[in-house]
Computed example of a mutant assay.
Amino acid sequence: MLWQRTLTALLMLAVLGAALFALPLTGWWLFCAALASLAAWEWAGLLRLPQASRLSYASGAAVAAFSCCFISSPLVDGVLFGLSGVFWIMVVPSWLRDRWKLGQGLLGLALGLLVIIPAALAVARLRQHSPWFLLSVMAIAWVADICAYFGGRSFGRHKLAPTISPGKSWEGVWTGVLGVLLYASLVFALALPQIPARLSWPLSLVLVLALTALSVVGDLFESMLKRQAGIKDSSNLLPGHGGVLDRIDSLTSTLPLVALWAQVWMV
């Protein structure tokens, strides 16, 4: 129901805001590791692993995420963000086109870590740049998702990927793009004094459009995996929203590339 979805979204935003602005650095790393653990537990569910294996995988993901944050190595960060970018830009489009199966072996487990760990590390690093910067980047995916949801319900006629996610439409995508462009224009205008001079209006809009496209890819990828696993939501942890993976699917494909860009651009 819409009221349940809205209430859960407000509670999630409150928790995120409190953690984002109140936790010390190590506490934030632990928060990121906890999110990675929950996402990994759900990923293991997509692989149909038994409960004990799911818990072990979730624990390993938490340790891996926190360790990467603690190491604080630009080289490690760059490699993880780069691998994530290659996966989302070069591998996933072919995966969606050919409907590859995830499988239940080591490859499936490794891919889960490739999806989750760079995203968790990106959240950790982008907050170190600026909590507001992280929040504004995350909001790109949220605005796209909200506008696409209502735009699709109101105007949806042409299916985006009917065999993957029947509820998504091209009208929803374009409504999401329009919403993101309006949001980005507002943010750019309000934050102009803090934005580097070399980041022009045209370049900023190109980057935002690229992130919006990647957010759709991340959303479709998780939808396809859930469809192949025969489930509607990755879990029922978040009433009205499903699971953690359902909420961060668009962020797993966008935040690592933003973090890589920030690592290079903001030095």
Rank of each mutant, 00 (worst) to 15 (best):
A39D: 00
S59H: 12
L49Y: 11
G27E: 01
F31D: 01
A22S: 12
F31S: 01
W29R: 14
V15L: 06
L35K: 10
A62V: 00
F21D: 07
A40K: 00
A18D: 11
G17R: 15
G60I: 04
A58P: 04
A65D: 00
L11I: 15
L55I: 15
A18P: 07
G17I: 06
A18G: 13
R54C: 05
P50W: 05
L13M: 13
L7Q: 11
W43Y: 00
Y57M: 00
P50Q: 09
G60K: 01
L38S: 04
T26A: 11
R48D: 08
Q51P: 09
G45T: 14
E42N: 07
L10C: 08
L23K: 06
A19H: 05
A40L: 01
C32I: 02
S37V: 04
W41H: 06
A58K: 12
L25Y: 10
S67F: 12
E42D: 03
L11W: 13
L10I: 15
A19F: 09
S67K: 13
S67P: 08
L25D: 12
W28I: 12
W29G: 13
F31I: 08
L7I: 15
R48L: 08
L30K: 03
M12W: 08
A22Q: 13
S56K: 11
A61R: 00
S56F: 08
G45D: 03
A52D: 14
A58S: 14
L10F: 06
A9L: 06
A18I: 15
L47H: 11
L38P: 05
M12A: 10
A36S: 09
T8K: 04
Q51T: 15
A44T: 14
P24R: 02
L10Y: 05
L30A: 13
A61P: 04
A44I: 03
S59Q: 11
L38A: 13
